[in-house]
Simulated scan of single mutants.
Amino acid sequence: MPAQRADARRNYARILAVAEEEVAAHGADASLEQIARTAGVGSATVRRHFPTRRALLEAVFHERIDALAVRARELAQAEDVRAALLEWLDALTAYSASARGLATAMLWDQEADPAHQNACVATLSEAGEPLLRRAEEAGAVPPGVTAADLLTLIAGIVLATERHPDPATEADRLLRLAVAGISPGGEGTTG
C-alpha cells in the first residue's frame, strides 16, 4: 500500500506540472486528455486527482494565490491604506494577466456548483477584506465595495485584454481607469 501512495503522489506531481504548462499555453480550456497523455497517465487518473476542471485550475494557481493573500495581509497594516490597496490590486492584475486561465477560474459561477466553493476567490477575498475595510474606513473607497467585487473587476479586465498585443500593459491601463471610479482623487488619503 505505501508504494501506491508514493506512486499516487508522483502521479499528482507529474499531472500538476504538466497542467501548469498546458494552462500557461492554452488557458482554462487546456485539454485534460492532453494533460493525461503528456503526464503519461490515463484520463481516469487525472480525474481521480482532480475531479473537475475547476479543481485542476485551483491547484495550478494555488501557490501564487497564497502569495497574493499573504501580501494582502501584510499590506493591511500599511499606513497609507489607499496606496496599499492599489499595490495589491496592481499585483493581482499583473499576475492575472500573466497567468492564462486564472481570470476564468475566478469568474466561474458558484451557483452552478454551490457545493464547491471557488478556492481562488475565497482565499483572495478573505485576505483582501481587511485591507479593503481599512481603505473604506479611511474614505479611500466607497462603502459596500467587497473584495469579491474587486476580484470580479480584475478578472473582467484581464479577460477583456487577454488577446491584446500587450495584455499586461493594457490590463494595467484599464485598472488605472477603473481606480479613478473606485477611489477618485484619493491620492493623499491615508489611514
Score class of each variant (00 low, 15 high):
55 A>C: 08
58 E>H: 13
58 E>T: 10
59 A>T: 10
59 A>R: 09
60 V>H: 07
60 V>K: 07
62 H>D: 13
62 H>E: 12
62 H>A: 15
63 E>K: 03
63 E>G: 00
64 R>G: 05
64 R>W: 09
64 R>V: 07
64 R>Y: 08
64 R>I: 07
64 R>E: 13
65 I>A: 08
66 D>F: 14
66 D>S: 15
66 D>W: 08
66 D>Y: 14
67 A>R: 04
68 L>P: 02
68 L>Y: 04
68 L>F: 03
68 L>W: 02
69 A>C: 06
70 V>E: 10
70 V>Q: 10
70 V>C: 05
71 R>K: 08
71 R>G: 02
71 R>E: 13
71 R>L: 09
73 R>C: 12
74 E>R: 13
74 E>S: 09
75 L>N: 03
75 L>G: 00
75 L>W: 00
75 L>I: 00
76 A>Y: 01
76 A>Q: 00
77 Q>P: 11
77 Q>D: 15
77 Q>S: 15
77 Q>A: 14
77 Q>R: 15
77 Q>N: 15
78 A>Y: 01
79 E>V: 05
80 D>I: 03
80 D>C: 02
81 V>I: 07
81 V>A: 03
82 R>T: 00
83 A>V: 06
83 A>T: 09
83 A>N: 08
84 A>L: 01
84 A>W: 03
84 A>S: 06
85 L>C: 01
86 L>D: 09
86 L>P: 04
87 E>T: 14
87 E>R: 14
89 L>E: 02
89 L>R: 03
89 L>H: 02
90 D>E: 04
90 D>M: 05
90 D>C: 04
91 A>P: 00
92 L>D: 06
92 L>N: 15
92 L>E: 13
93 T>D: 13
93 T>P: 06
93 T>F: 12
93 T>L: 13
94 A>K: 08
94 A>E: 14
94 A>F: 04
95 Y>P: 01
96 S>Y: 02
97 A>P: 12
97 A>L: 15
98 S>W: 00
98 S>M: 03
98 S>T: 10
99 A>T: 07
99 A>M: 07
100 R>F: 07
100 R>E: 12
100 R>Y: 09
100 R>K: 15
101 G>R: 11
102 L>T: 15
102 L>K: 15
103 A>F: 05
103 A>M: 05
104 T>E: 13
104 T>Q: 09
105 A>Y: 02
107 L>C: 10
107 L>F: 08
107 L>N: 06
108 W>H: 12
108 W>Y: 13
109 D>Q: 10
110 Q>F: 09
110 Q>C: 07
110 Q>G: 09
111 E>L: 10
111 E>R: 12
111 E>C: 10
111 E>Q: 14
112 A>W: 05
112 A>M: 09
